[in-house]
Write a protein that binds this DNA or RNA. Structure first.
Lengths: 334, 334
DNA sequence: TTAGGTAAAGAAAGCGGTTTCATGCTTCTT
DNA sequence: AAGAAGCATGAAACCGCTTTCTTTACCTAA
């Protein structure tokens, strides 16, 4: 019934014939302890299977070994596998470094909501945020010196530490592919332009055109909201207004699927009449027919990178934002 | 730079003109404190925006307010939105109850691995596990008195507290629907039979047949592994051996998609020649063409229920396993 | 009036580590 | 060879809150 009583410094010190202070030194890697005594302490620790009591350590040292992963409830947290995958990557790496992952799914909006307060009062050693629209909270926290990593690019060009997929490169590759396969008029269905990621994908699209010495007509850019419905709606509109569109880059797979549905409803086929490229290489892309050509991002790696940047900060090592490469996965749709 | 110094009992006691012990009593709802003094304390607490120091509280009281959510790394954690969604539900409810979610993505396999040790030593107040094949670890932990909730049915009929979707009911409804729409020969592509969930879905299928006064031929049951490929492979085999199959219940959406692909490769169409029902009502089901008829489970609710059962246990309230209803979402495929 | 009982509140001892400070011992300086 | 300096080590304070134990004050009963 009772969790077995754990040993404390007191018993270890006694067993090893040293003081508790020495035990502490040994366990914290203080090198100015006699070799033999240190060895003895370690032997006892090993034999007793001793592990430090987290709360006690936290209280005494002021560091909790807890890293918060803050996820905005407002995002499409539910049903989108993205964040879960990132988080698992984060968690794995943190764990390997003796850090714990504290998950907070909440409305991040308020600058002085409970989350803000919580993070502000030294309850965690650092915080990893997921892409957010408003970064007032993050900015405020950063001022307190709390180590922070943002997954996804921060809104403004600040000096926040962040990790992100190469959205620009992905958008560029997707568009380039459409052009290379012979498309003459390539449209784009953008996602949330408010986010940097959304914007960068569009930029990549423009860049691909630019390299051709052309500038895409404004009328070729449609604005969706990452949902299937919006993709379908916008594609229908685009095709109605400009029936000669023969390629489209949708900024995520869901909208791409919507676009394909729209194309087929018009009595056209994909990729013969209109080629489609998505973004994410999600399950949806992999299982659809025609298989969806899509830009793959390594989501687990994104989480791992975030965790690594956090750990580097905790060690006071210099930290650079990290941008992970994408890969175009070619299937039937383009 | 420095996180602003937080007030402690010491200053609150001074401000309110009482002892620290009294402050503690007030803050822990001990009712035998003079009304006026209590009010005074609360006023000061409010004014100073005081919040207890978690580590200190944990050290002194022995309760950490931390609930571990343990996810087995071996599962298809990556790419499957299921776990992430459950976790977000858990986290939200725990948070509302002043509990923190500690995420552990790891190999649960070993009974005395680091996770086991961690959970065993009072670092958390409870643990929520995700469906697992081997429950040796859980069984051992339960013996120590650690409150535990299992998401998904435990393997053996034990007295573990668990929450699960009504897999039996879902399988039954799916099969019934196929029969009702006129299918004469309904096959099933089972998932992992080792798990209770996988088994129950098959049982539901049998039950639907039984209600018709029939018993499905063994040859109508195929075994996949929840992957798209396995669904496609098994469906191809089924149709080759028994071309008159006109309905199939795939135990998840991915296999259902594979099945549809197989059907179309045979030159047949869904639902005209073979009707298909999936399970999960995932994004895949929602965006596929034909839209996939599928059994929906409320995944967020699953997480919320798990958290609620955990909280009930912490309060020493009586706890019953909970089975959540499913809903058949009808689209074009059946 | 006085002994006995009860309830509110303060003093103080932990909880299990970390860290400062003092101590005794060895080593270096001239 | 004596005093300064350097070091490994232990004693003890401390982190912020909980809880037991004591004290104090007030009531009731005889």
């Amino acid at each position: 019934m009772t969790p077995k009583a754990r040993p404390t410094y007191s018993v270890i010190a006694k067993e090893a014939g040293v003081s508790e202070a020495t035990v502490s030194r040994v366990l914290n890697g203080d090198d100015r302890v006699d070799q033999e005594r240190a060895a003895k302490v370690l032997e006892v620790v090993e034999r007793l299977g001793y592990k430090k009591h987290r709360a006690a350590t936290a209280l005494a040292s002021g560091r909790t070994n807890l890293i918060a992963v803050v996820i905005d409830n407002d995002l499409s947290v539910f049903s989108d596998p993205f964040w879960g995958t990132v988080t698992s990557g984060i968690s794995r790496v943190l764990m390997e470094n003796e850090l714990q992952t504290l998950l907070m799914v909440t409305s991040v909006s308020s600058v002085d909501g409970p989350v803000a307060h919580y993070l502000n009062t030294g309850e965690v050693d650092g915080a990893i945020f997921f892409q957010l629209h408003k970064d007032a909270l993050v900015r405020k926290l950063a001022k307190t010196g709390l180590p922070i990593v943002i997954t996804g690019s921060p809104h403004a060009a600040t000096d926040f530490v962040f990790v992100d997929t190469d959205n620009f490169g992905g958008g560029h590759a997707a568009t380039k592919h459409l052009i290379n396969r012979g498309c003459k008029k390539v449209a784009i269905i953008a996602g949330d332009i408010e986010t940097v990621a959304g914007h960068q994908r569009v930029d990549g699209y423009h860049q691909a055109y630019r390299e051709l010495g052309r500038v895409p007509s404004k009328s070729l850019t449609a604005y969706g909201d990452y949902s299937y419905e919006s993709g379908k709606r916008e594609m229908t509109r685009l095709l109605t207004e400009q029936p000669d569109i023969d390629g489209v880059f949708a900024c995520n797979d869901l909208m791409a699927m919507g676009a394909i549905a729209a194309i087929e409803e018009k009595g056209l086929t994909c990729p013969d009449h209109v080629a489609v490229v998505g973004f994410d290489d999600s399950l949806v892309a992999q299982t659809s027919r025609p298989g969806l050509t899509s830009v793959r991002q390594d989501i687990v790696a994104l989480g791992e990178a975030a965790a690594e940047l956090m750990i580097a900060q905790l060690r006071n090592e210099p930290v650079e934002p990290r941008i992970l490469p994408t890969e175009l996965v070619i299937r039937e749709s383009a």
